[in-house]
Design a binder for these strands. Structure first.
Length: 501
RNA sequence: CGAGGCGUAGCUCAGCUUGGUAGAGCGCGUGCUUUGGGAGCACGAAGUCGCAGGUUCGAAUCCUGUCGCCUCGACCA
């Protein structure tokens, strides 16, 4: 029966599995506009949990939220040369402000053409730095630590739900500092926040590092990234933190007067994570039965399925409600548990088991008349699928233990998968072989001569790119000098190559 | 923008070759029976066959055009 659940198995077709998963688990739909998605309540619930967790971490590191506008004057984008190069090809442009009736239906009113066209933000550096110019005058105004939760639009040619959509939700932090070193510290603080979030909340092990010049953000001095490995052995960039140096301060003429009375341009950072985190979560943990959600980010942590008919069902439901109340009142990681009692009468228990597995409930509690007699219930963890019994009065403790164990088990399994698929390669033949064929090839740690030309040639011949130069080497030997895998030129250390999403 | 494929019920699709009353499964509604791994039976609602032309007595089916979507490449978080 498992094959008949409407999800293509991963082994058969990974891309199709992902699409089926997103749709069948009720996370999102395609919109009528290509590239846009409808995030459904179950998917949005995951985003809300992510957002709340991250928002708390940003506040704890001294940041405040603000909101900047969706529309940006076209001329702003071109102030920073690299920035415009990076984004010009994927901007939606607003050219008119009115529609009118016509025999063919509603048309754009040609008389309502805008003097200066507006772009829908692909990112907000320019509009924000325009404001910062008036906000910042003295070193006493620094550091300025702002975040915003917003939607942005990048006109993608090949969209995929959550991973790459034309419109997506994200947060973007934009900070200003008096010195290069302070900005550097900020970029690294955020890199650490992202790392902790990915590993502790998402249970996704990541490699944190710095991007090569070829892969850095358009307009950045350098870009930090966290990279995860998906089950099809590709890399996915889950978050980025940019040190912008004085690039935007110069483009928007944002200066401050130092304590010594000197006029200087400020230093900046920007950083973001998006709804792509949901795609990352799915790609790392879920299976052929549906969504597998780390307990700390699961919309439903416990699904209770009452079993029985007529009077039995009523009695069982009463007990289920009482158990649910006990679970909800308890605290796990400081938060009330998210519990659902599934009292639907038309669906059979078997259907509900499959349904909650599809939707990613972490722990399923089954309780029927026979359990009631015995004063126990059946507890099943989503990632294991093994049925265990627990005394009713101990259920809350058992559930807490299972959730904690599952959170850890998901991370451990993902880490084991990454380690099993991380290889060190020293010859060009081995390198090409690692990335031959369809699908991923895992992470390949290889020496690189540091030039953009070599990076490009490697990408053209193997489809693999440099994902990052790890901040902390994965193994001590990775930072010993060697010879570039393609050119043989000297290399200081190994970098991470992979095929990427 | 290049290469393939597909548009028929909410979903997945059959029907098209050879033109002749619009089909199936799932889902949905009602009722009864069921309930420990996707329950059964009965009845029922549901469609401008993507759109526009053309051929024909007659078009889902043949022809022309057009729009949209999906998959794969070039760009990207």
């Amino acid at each position: 029966m498992a094959s008949d659940l409407g999800i293509t198995p991963r082994a058969e077709n990974y891309a199709e599995w992902y699409n089926d998963l997103v749709k069948r688990a009720g996370l999102a739909d395609n919109s009528v506009v290509r590239g846009c998605m409808v995030i459904k309540p179950h998917g949005y619930a995951i985003w809300e949990l992510m957002r709340d967790a991250l928002d708390g971490m940003f506040k704890a590191t001294g940041h405040q939220n603000a909101y900047f506008p969706l529309l940006i004057p076209k001329s702003f984008l071109s102030r920073e040369a690299e920035h415009v190069d990076g984004f010009a090809k994927e901007c939606a442009v607003v050219t008119h402000h009115r529609l009118m009736d016509s025999p063919e239906g509603v048309i754009v009113d040609p008389d309502a053409k805008l003097e200066e066209e507006l772009i829908i933000r692909p990112t907000s550096e320019t509009i924000i730095w325009h404001s910062y110019k008036t906000w910042i005058q003295s070193y006493r105004d620094l550091p300025l630590l702002i975040n915003q939760w917003a939607n942005v639009m990048r006109w993608e040619l090949r969209p995929r739900l959550f991973l790459r959509t034309a419109e997506f939700l994200w947060q973007e932090g934009h900070t200003a500092h008096a010195t290069y070193d302070e900005a550097e510290e900020e970029a690294l603080t955020i890199l650490e926040v992202y790392t902790r979030f990915a590993e502790d909340w998402m249970a996704v092990p990541i490699v944190a590092g710095v991007k090569s010049d070829g892969e850095k953000f358009a307009g950045a001095d350098h870009t930090y990234t966290i990279e995860a490995m998906t089950q099809d052995l590709r890399a996915i960039q889950a978050g980025t933190s940019h040190h912008l140096a004085q690039n935007f301060a110069k483009a928007f003429d944002v200066t401050f007067q130092s304590a010594e009375g000197k006029e200087e341009h400020v230093y900046a950072t920007s950083w973001g994570v998006s709804t792509r985190l949901i795609g990352t979560l799915l790609m790392v943990h879920s299976d052929d039965k549906g969504l597998v959600c780390p307990p700390r980010l699961a919309p439903v942590q416990v699904a209770i399925v009452p079993i029985g008919r007529k009077d039995d069902f009523v009695r069982v439901c009463e007990v289920a409600d009482r158990l649910a109340a006990g679970l909800t009142e308890s605290r796990w990681h400081g938060l009330p548990l998210r519990v659902k009692v599934d009292k639907r009468e038309k669906e059979s228990p078997g259907f509900k088991f499959n349904d909650w597995e599809l939707k990613g409930a972490c722990v399923r509690v089954e309780i029927g008349p026979r359990d009631l007699e015995a004063g126990q219930c059946v507890v099943v963890r989503r990632d294991e699928g093994e049925k265990k019994t627990a005394p009713l009065e101990e259920l809350t403790d058992v559930v807490h233990a299972e959730l904690s164990a599952m959170q850890a088990a998901l991370f451990d399994r993902a880490l084991a998968m990454r380690e099993a698929n991380t290889h060190r390669v020293d010859t060009w033949d081995e390198f090409k072989a690692a990335f031959a064929g369809e699908g991923g090839g895992g992470f390949v740690l290889a020496h690189w001569d540091g030039t953009r030309e070599t990076e490009q040639r490697i990408n053209e011949e193997t489809k693999a790119t440099i994902r990052c130069i790890p901040r902390v080497p994965l193994a001590a030997g990775d930072v010993e000098p060697g010879a570039c895998v393609l050119t043989g030129h000297p290399s200081e250390r190994r970098v991470v190559f992979a095929k990427a999403y």
